[in-house]
């Protein structure tokens, strides 16, 4: 079933892709133009996706509830990191994401936090102090 659904999804994306390509036109110079290659890619992709819908191959077992929840929690931590990196500054955000991911992976809470702090500080020293990358210690929230 999952394979069929994926086939439908890929088919729709490929169809939209090939359809959108028709609008790309350039009036000058180039023989090929900007739309031919996407159409050449999109149409076989549609055909293959369709074949997966009709003759699905293989089976997929998705993770069960609690595991799915863990994955969602980890993803949330990663997205939060991307959101908060600039406001919070590098060491704080990084320590938090390391600790969060470690805990989602069943690490003991205190040790996870310690690893987060140690890891983030050593990465900060490495990247900011030794390599001279412009990473702020304090984020925009703290006026850094």
């Amino acid at each position: 079933m999952s394979i069929r659904l994926a086939g439908v999804a890929i088919f729709l994306v490929a169809a939209l892709y090939a359809w959108t390509a028709q609008d790309y036109t350039a009036s000058f110079g180039d023989v090929l133009g900007p739309s031919v290659f996407p159409v050449m890619v999109g149409i076989p992709a549609m055909a293959l996706a369709l074949s997966l819908v009709v003759f699905p191959g293989g089976s997929v077992s998705w993770p069960s509830g609690p595991r799915l929840l863990r994955q969602a929690m980890a993803l949330a931590a990663l997205i939060a990191y991307a959101l908060l990196l600039e406001p919070l500054g590098f060491p704080l955000a990084t320590a938090a994401v390391i600790a969060a991911v470690a805990m989602v992976l069943d690490g003991p809470a205190i040790k996870s936090v310690l690893i987060g702090i140690a890891g983030s500080l050593s990465l900060w020293v490495l990247f900011d102090q030794l390599l001279g990358l412009p990473i702020d210690f304090l984020g925009t929230l703290f006026g850094g």
Partner: peptide, 15 residues
């Protein structure tokens, strides 16, 4: 252990 290693790998990827 994995729980200590993977978060560091993730952090390094992000940086």
């Amino acid at each position: 252990p994995t729980w200590a290693l993977m978060p560091l790998v993730v952090a390094i990827s992000f940086i």
